[in-house]
Design a binder for these strands. Structure first.
Lengths: 226, 226
DNA sequence: GTCTATACATAGATAGAC
DNA sequence: GTCTATCTATGTATAGAC
């Protein structure tokens, strides 16, 4: 699997995402016409993620968002109750998609080695397709209210647990060396995160998403394979 | 070298840091008594880094800082011209120390392998000794004014260049395999960053700084050594 | 549905008393 | 040197016109 295939297979269109947000937040969205909602939610979320790649969510004012999205300040409040709810909206929806796609993709593998490769590729490809969202989540995590912060950490540990399980299975089947599993999974996660956190660096150096994925797989195989 | 030895060897005391800040910023600091300045700069910087481990620098109000540092809002402005200058003060001083210590430490090694090990250890140990500062820099980088942002990126690339040079030297001397050097240095940097960005995770899992350093060295040797 | 105008809160910064 | 009081700017949120 390469990135272009992944993108075809996994449809992460903005319309789909906005549609799901609408479903899950009918109460707090005051506008009734579905088309309008989807159209404007896309504008709002795009603008938010764009602004927040340069400054923090807290530093983004509703005035900024109004200017960037093209909606007036008043109109914005027809789509979310307050600024904090907008943040939660974006985070929860992204989390839902990311967890779903990752779990689906890994299920396609049979051997631990195949699963490991699939896990690495789908995580990197997913973070490539949703780069601004991944970046946003990482960066904003600590500014969240307690509940939301807890959910973010849970989601992070859940992903890591997937890696830990795969590695453990490989060790049990004598395919992988008996390494420190916690540390192996941790450094893997660190490498995966670097892809979306340092996108500018890899872009400048002309490292493609497929190059990066292959290299991370190579590193993990170097330490794990017998 | 283990962490406890490193700490003895490299004196990164708060008094020393504050003293250097005073020297470099005599113009903007209105208070004349040196002892007072050092005493209060420590309070201010500690409080800032502490608050900013939970929310962004921009989200920290001068009122927050006043409460946490014990100085009144008015008094704070005797130590920096405005909030942005406080940010620059903290960042530039940390950068100066980090670059200096790293360069010094690596110079102690002779062979590329020895240098690589020293570079990894001193970076991890340094980020352990200055954890709040490293975290702060990483997180605040994108909210900085253009100039300061440029300096942060330069500092990041400078560190990475150190790794690239060591790896290239090793390849030239046929000690290391002919790997993709850029990618090898990048994933190394990613692993180093994880230590200070995910301090809570490693603490919960009882991974010591020495354990982590040894594992990162092990990973790099797995992919590089012939 | 969306906009403009505005109320209300909180922030950074300064002046002058102590 | 430090504090209190206060000015001014900027931000969120809402009400009511269109």
């Amino acid at each position: 699997m390469i990135y272009s295939e992944f993108k075809k297979m996994v449809n992460i269109s903005k319309e789909e995402i906005s549609g799901q947000i609408l479903e899950r937040n009918r109460d707090s969205i005051k506008v009734k016409k579905e088309e309008k909602v989807i159209e404007n939610l896309i504008k709002i979320i795009d603008a938010t993620l764009d602004i927040c790649s340069k400054k923090s969510f807290q530093a983004m004012s509703i005035r900024d968002l109004s200017a960037a999205s093209g909606l007036s300040r008043g109109a914005l409040y027809s789509y979310f109750i307050n600024k904090e709810e907008l943040l939660i909206l974006i985070l929860s929806q992204g989390r839902e998609i990311a967890n779903r796609v990752l779990t689906q993709q890994i299920a396609r593998g049979s051997s631990p080695l195949e699963k490991l490769r699939l896990a690495i590729k789908s995580h990197i490809y997913l973070s490539e397709a949703m780069q601004t969202w991944f970046y946003f989540t990482y960066i904003e995590a600590r500014s969240l209210p307690r509940d939301e912060q807890k959910r973010t950490i849970e989601s992070e540990l859940y992903t890591e647990k997937i890696f830990i399980d795969i590695i453990n299975e490989g060790i049990a089947k004598k395919i992988f060396r008996n390494e420190n599993v916690i540390l192996a999974a941790s450094v893997l996660k660190a490498m995966l995160q670097d892809w979306y956190m340092k996108r500018w660096k890899y872009k400048n150096r002309k490292v493609s998403v497929d190059d990066y994925a292959d290299f991370v797989i190579h590193v993990m195989e170097s330490i794990l394979l017998i």
